[in-house]
């Protein structure tokens, strides 16, 4: 461990501590976003660029903007939301005991962890030829453990449905006192920046086949482009969803299941792909997943059932 890594580890611990103990909500959120960026850096240091990209795009980027937009709605609802009184002693002690037990258990489990050559990771690398795709992370996510990824997509869909049911009062609405929109630079942001961001998102999805990247990272970047357009008022959240939009939302899950089921008679198992077609199928699935992920994350931000382009 070099000096840089030690400083990074220390910084992460301090940021985590400060983001929980920050005196006001806003500072806590900003510290949390910084924590996400530092975590992404630490994944990059651990030679896990896929995780670094995912953490930066989702953990720091989209989660950050979700927290900030929620904070803004809370501010508007009641400027001094929440009481400054500390929780009662019983609650605080319960939290202390709970976190200590949890942290201790994780520490014991990590201590007992032995990295050997017979682990799943080594197994996956050894049988990479069977996956039909060169990038180990994508091979594991979409082929060896495709069932997990399918269920993850289901979880994301459920989360979106739950959020839409709950978040409607917190839905993102353009603020009336918001002066940013009149700025001439906002159209630069919408016209020059968004296409580049979209390009980067599509590239990341495509790159998942041979390098760091993939549906989750690319989808998150595409959702970021959507958020940019929303903030520039080129898009707005709408209450009625069209059938097309709903279709795109479930496209990832549908593509996964349909391809898995269609190939069952030949392959004899659900989600098993014929060796010659693996590459094409995985790219198709990856792009469908990315579209659904991008749209789900964008709708999580607006808190509405649909987004529409502003007609000018």
């Amino acid at each position: 461990m070099t000096l840089f890594d030690s400083v990074l580890a220390l910084l992460i611990a301090i940021l985590a501590w400060r983001s929980v103990t920050a005196p006001d909500l806003y500072r806590g959120i900003v510290l949390f976003i910084t924590l996400g960026l530092m975590l992404a850096l630490s994944w990059a240091r651990l030679d896990a660029p896929d995780l670094a990209l995912a953490e930066a795009a989702i953990g720091a980027g989209l989660l950050g903007i979700l927290l900030l937009s929620t904070w803004r709605v809370l501010q508007r609802a009641a400027p001094r939301q929440g009481s400054d009184e500390p929780a009662s002693y019983a609650v605080r002690w319960l939290a202390v005991v709970g976190s200590t037990v949890f942290g201790g258990t994780v520490a014991v489990a990590l201590y007992g962890l032995q990295v050997g050559s017979d682990r799943a990771g080594a197994e996956a690398l050894a049988s990479l030829d069977l996956a039909g795709i060169d990038q180990p992370v994508t091979a594991v996510l979409l082929n060896f453990r495709s069932y997990d990824t399918l269920l993850e997509m289901g979880v994301l869909l459920m989360a979106l449905i739950g959020a839409l049911l709950i978040r409607s009062p917190l839905a993102y609405e353009p603020w009336h006192g918001d002066t940013a929109v009149e700025s001439p630079l906002m159209s630069v942001l919408a016209k020059v920046f968004t296409p580049i961001v979209v390009l980067v998102g599509i590239f990341l999805v495509w790159a998942g086949a041979y390098g760091p990247g993939g549906a989750f990272q690319g989808g998150a970047v595409l959702a970021g482009a959507g958020v940019l357009l929303l903030l520039c008022r080129r898009l707005y959240g709408d209450a009625d969803a069209t059938l097309l939009l709903r279709g795109l939302l479930v496209l990832g899950v549908t593509a996964f299941i349909v391809i898995g089921l269609l190939l069952m008679p030949w392959q004899g198992a659900f989600l098993a792909y014929p060796p010659g077609l693996v590459y094409v199928l995985l790219v198709v699935i990856e792009f469908s997943l990315a579209v659904s992920i991008a749209l789900s994350l964008l709708l999580l931000f607006t808190g509405t059932h649909a987004v529409r382009a502003v007609r000018s």
């Binding site: 002066t179 700025s183 630079l185 020059v192 920046f193």
Partner: peptide, 12 residues
Amino acid sequence: TASSIACHLVAR
């Protein structure tokens, strides 16, 4: 570009 626009928006 991003930081200039962000700076402009914060200042504004």
